[in-house]
Design a protein around this nucleic acid. Structure first.
Lengths: 242, 242
DNA sequence: CGCGCAAAATTGGACTACCCACTAACCCAT
DNA sequence: ATGGGTTAGTGGGTAGTCCAATTTTGCGCG
């Protein structure tokens, strides 16, 4: 009996609570629910959406965690903000047309972190950065792309910058950045160039040259950005959206 | 009737799934779970943590949505990344000792957004900003703090900046910013000063004076920051953590 | 012995029913 | 009006059950 011609499900898997997040977003606009107003009770909402309360509560947990709703015990579920309800950073970022925005944000954050690192770096931070570059060099020597070392280096810089909030924010962009890094390092000769650029950043941070660190980081990122934009911009289409 | 402009008390609530998120983070380090490895089955995990499976699944939904874990139907729950597992921005931000970092991040983002707004603003954006200031003025005239107008103005600037990614990131700081805004505007005479500062920002954006917009925004934020830091820094303690 | 494949065990997905805790609305006595 | 207690409504959480996808087991055959 096995006609299993559908073994592939890399994407498009059904996670009910994820659908619910979107459907709740639709609910907000359909019922014209305003910020501050209350949703129907969970039980009613669940029955209207034709799901169980437990599934609904998974979706509500996500939305609450995301800051879109506020759930008051005994009080009800309230809309906090409606802007981009179903749209998390993930979704936002995976649209190629948005790449320039990602790169813009990354530059802003990383350059500042580099400046901070130049001011605040400890010897331990420097050791981490050096270790990352050593690892990167080893990867490249064995024909690798040095992506792990690359990531480790930037991570070390972030830690040296000593601002948990900025660090966390940039983590949010990590996935998208990872993609651009892959694109960039796949370019011929790019790994070695990248290594040199990283060394320049490290030197500036070590010498506590703030402006120089910022410039070095900016230059490095723009080099990456050029490649990424060149490769991606031609393929502009991205139909309206499902 | 009494205006319900302060119905929010984000402190003191206990949300089991939030605790679970943290406890799962502890579990990861305690059992030395590595990225890519599998968690115990939901049923076992639930019994070990002494919670119901439904509650656990709320936590898992949040963690999956956050990208920390991957849940495969029939396969198990796998660790995707461990860095900052239990540390969502919310938690990070609500520790007062971290206020300087929040303000630092906010300034970085808002100043850039102001620059971008000065370049990219449309007439529609300008209209939104003006409307926000009118609302703010009206609020203040009726002895209010003008917080809604304040928020609306910044929101309009963000939209004018036209970078969805930066916009989203700053939204993540929205809560913390909201708190600083409250602290600041409670200061005597602050609302009117704030209104003037906002007008200066608007003028610069309208005239498309990039540097001037940046300066005006920076000055405004530092005025807010001064108040917030003065009021909050004395109360430094924040015991280790549960 | 080893390979293939189907049955069985494992594990996540989802639902139902139930009870508890907190809120807010209401009503009544003052 | 005002204060306080009652009560219906609403979220918080649990246990049990069944379904669906995956992984493991083990048997039969070459």
């Amino acid at each position: 009996m096995t006609l299993d011609t559908s073994p592939l499900r890399p994407l498009g898997r059904t996670r009910l609570y994820e659908d619910l997040v979107e459907r709740l977003g639709e609910f907000v606009v359909r019922t014209n629910l305003r910020v501050g107003e209350r949703f129907p009770p969970e039980r009613e909402l669940a029955s209207r959406l034709e799901v169980s309360r437990s599934s609904l509560r998974q979706a509500l947990a996500v939305l609450e965690n995301q800051g879109f709703i506020e759930v008051r015990h005994g009080g009800g579920v309230f809309l906090r903000r409606s802007r981009g309800f179903g749209g998390v950073l993930h979704k936002l970022v995976e649209r190629r047309a948005r790449l320039p925005e990602v790169l813009e944000a990354r530059e802003l954050l990383e350059v500042r972190l580099a400046e901070l690192a130049a001011t605040r770096r400890t010897d331990e931070d420097l050791a981490s950065m050096r270790a990352a570059l050593v690892a990167m060099e080893a990867e490249i020597a064995s024909a690798g792309l040095g992506m792990d070392g690359d990531a480790a280096f930037h991570h070390a810089v972030h830690r040296a910058g000593d601002n948990k909030v900025l660090e966390h924010v940039i983590d949010g962009l990590a996935e998208a950045i990872h993609e651009t890094r892959l694109e960039s390092l796949s370019e011929p000769n790019r790994p070695r160039n990248s290594l040199v650029a990283h060394r320049r950043i490290l030197d500036a941070i070590e010498a506590q040259q703030v402006a120089q660190a910022a410039d070095a980081m900016r230059a490095h990122l723009r080099q990456v950005a050029d490649v990424a934009l060149l490769r991606w911009e031609p393929s502009v289409e991205d139909p309206p959206l499902p």
